[in-house]
Design a protein around this nucleic acid. Sequence first.
DNA 1: AATGAATGAGAATTCATTCAT
DNA 2: CATGAATGAATTCTCATTCAT
Lengths: 216, 216, 216, 216
Amino acid sequence: MGEKMPFRSRNPEATKADILAAARSEFAKAGLGGARVDKIAEQSGANKRMIYHYFGGKEQLFAAVVEDAYTHIRSGERELGLDELSPTEAICRLVEFTWRYYLENPEFITLVNSENLHLAKHISGNRQLRKLQKNYVDSVAAILERGAAQGVFRKDIDAAQLCITIAAIGFYYLNNRHTGGVLFGFNFASREALAARLKFNTDTILRLVAVGPMLG
Amino acid sequence: MGEKMPFRSRNPEATKADILAAARSEFAKAGLGGARVDKIAEQSGANKRMIYHYFGGKEQLFAAVVEDAYTHIRSGERELGLDELSPTEAICRLVEFTWRYYLENPEFITLVNSENLHLAKHISGNRQLRKLQKNYVDSVAAILERGAAQGVFRKDIDAAQLCITIAAIGFYYLNNRHTGGVLFGFNFASREALAARLKFNTDTILRLVAVGPMLG
Amino acid sequence: MGEKMPFRSRNPEATKADILAAARSEFAKAGLGGARVDKIAEQSGANKRMIYHYFGGKEQLFAAVVEDAYTHIRSGERELGLDELSPTEAICRLVEFTWRYYLENPEFITLVNSENLHLAKHISGNRQLRKLQKNYVDSVAAILERGAAQGVFRKDIDAAQLCITIAAIGFYYLNNRHTGGVLFGFNFASREALAARLKFNTDTILRLVAVGPMLG
Amino acid sequence: MGEKMPFRSRNPEATKADILAAARSEFAKAGLGGARVDKIAEQSGANKRMIYHYFGGKEQLFAAVVEDAYTHIRSGERELGLDELSPTEAICRLVEFTWRYYLENPEFITLVNSENLHLAKHISGNRQLRKLQKNYVDSVAAILERGAAQGVFRKDIDAAQLCITIAAIGFYYLNNRHTGGVLFGFNFASREALAARLKFNTDTILRLVAVGPMLG
DNA sequence: AATGAATGAGAATTCATTCAT
DNA sequence: CATGAATGAATTCTCATTCAT
């Protein structure tokens, strides 16, 4: 109670992690331009100086946050064990995971938007993220092949386009839930609305991959 | 002595329009937080003071830009004459229009993202936009009904969810084209990639609305 | 007396000049690295923002100060009317002017030092200063030629080296008057010491240019 | 476990010397105001904390550097053996040494400038430096006396003024070589320019001390 | 209606120095 | 003796906004 505690931590890794977590939250809430280094320092419990010491500056901190975010979602996908499920179950599981990930990690969406606003310059040339993404797309391609072999999926579905579409239908809904609420006149975030959307999304993807008449 | 031409324009409407156009560009490029009033003034050719005179401030200018953007896209949809087309043609036309609108008006995407980052507070309570949106959704609902009556579309497809999905698959792809390029390793904006995505999107939506086996 | 005076001036030229004067003083006192933008703003009576508005930044302000300083001393030299004096009188006059200029404008010395500390990068490529300097050296060359023609000066004295030497013997003494006082144990700035040094300097230069035995 | 070698040196004298050398370089390059303690620590290979341990702080470190610099040049002068040379040779030797010392120890010049910018407060009251300086001036006075006795030098030349002048003509040229290059339009540091200047300087001093007509 | 000089509050970043180990 | 993480106080610079003309 009476001990002075001038230095909150002598653990650099913990300090870095705390800064990163606070930065993720602040960048997600305000974007790169609107985020305040002061707030990040305060929220992280670290000294502002530490941000510059460990990350070099606001933009480099942002870059670290974005890389971390992508690494995290890719790691979640890897742990789904998709290759142990039937093709249809795997696809459903992936749609659900993607949806739930966005729902439980809403910072991910605004971070990705911020990075795109800045033309992806903070991850440009990042080989690690490219590799993680490739692994992910390959695993989806494997599902599609299994499905096609079993005669339940159409042949020649582009795995990358499918990945994009699975992300799109969840990302867009949750990203635009605020303007959506105003424009459509219902609460996008209500339990019922969320459940309905997930069902619609799963349906959309299943109809997309399912064998069926040639259209268009 | 009397020959100075200090006032570039005595046309308030033109001045407002110039400011709005410059603001749209700047807000789209940098977001609300990153946009600079100075730049908007400079780019618009108007005096900075005019921004405050006509719009009241940065945030109010942003609100005007966002409202203008939504009004513009809704107006584009109205002019498609969807009710004069066959249900399938109408849906295709709408998917294509939405895609092309985003492609040709990339500011729209980042403006919508910015507004959502700020929880839609600048359009919150905007009855006009709500009304325009309702007209749009109703027109889509009418298409779905016609399609169901003709036996080419499934019954009971939720028009709002369909609208969201049509937007999502184009919006997400184009919004995330920069990070997508880095992660997927191909140029999302190449002529071929854009054509392939539009085809995939049309296919996705047609399979979604088409009659077919019950899934899920 | 009772009027509020929120804006100290609507005269941009006066504001710029005030900033420049305050900056000269501060940079001279503390060097580029030690000078404080805040102090300059305060001393100039202008808002700090104005410094950035008019000059762009601390370094550019420094560059403006240095250019101004060189322009000023060159202008002083031009006004001496050296070509109307006898060669010997002209040389004496120049030695005295140079000495007095440094004495009355001590900032000049430290500004020049600062600029040299920074490898002259702020005036690098400045054609105007090069031209002013050339005019000055040419006027000294003309004196030397007149002196040689009259048989009072040696032939083939390098005008640039002479200019440098005239500057050196005054500049060094005044520049190093503080360390000099400590090391030599007398007050370099006393009236007597200053007078003695000026006499010594004039003597040095006159002996340097005077006809006389070949040495060395 | 016990094999870590965390302490680079248990040699306090070496550590102090390393810090001093790094500090000399950094202070010379950036001035007192512009020098960075971090850089000194890094360049010296020592821990930043050591600077405070051994020197007390940035300013005290600067004081140590300046004292060291003066001690070093005085020691060089002492080793010239001037009293074993003829008066003229001794003077030439001194001019050359001074020139070469500045040329080979360019930090000396900027350190002296920095100290003068700060009004010599770091060496103020330093008896040791005063004493070294006195020995040096006395040795020059002895040369002048010998020269006068031999009839080759003028009588009553002020030894201190001569010392100052010998320093001045080299110091100024080298100190201002960067601005000089821009203003005069030639490279002050080229081999030829340096040789020409040394010759000019020697000539200047020899003419100054040589017997000759009374001037002024 | 239009101008642009001026401002104060606040933003990112830097720095010399100290503390716990 | 030696380390390097941590700090608080400055310091440079930016920005939305207002005032006098």
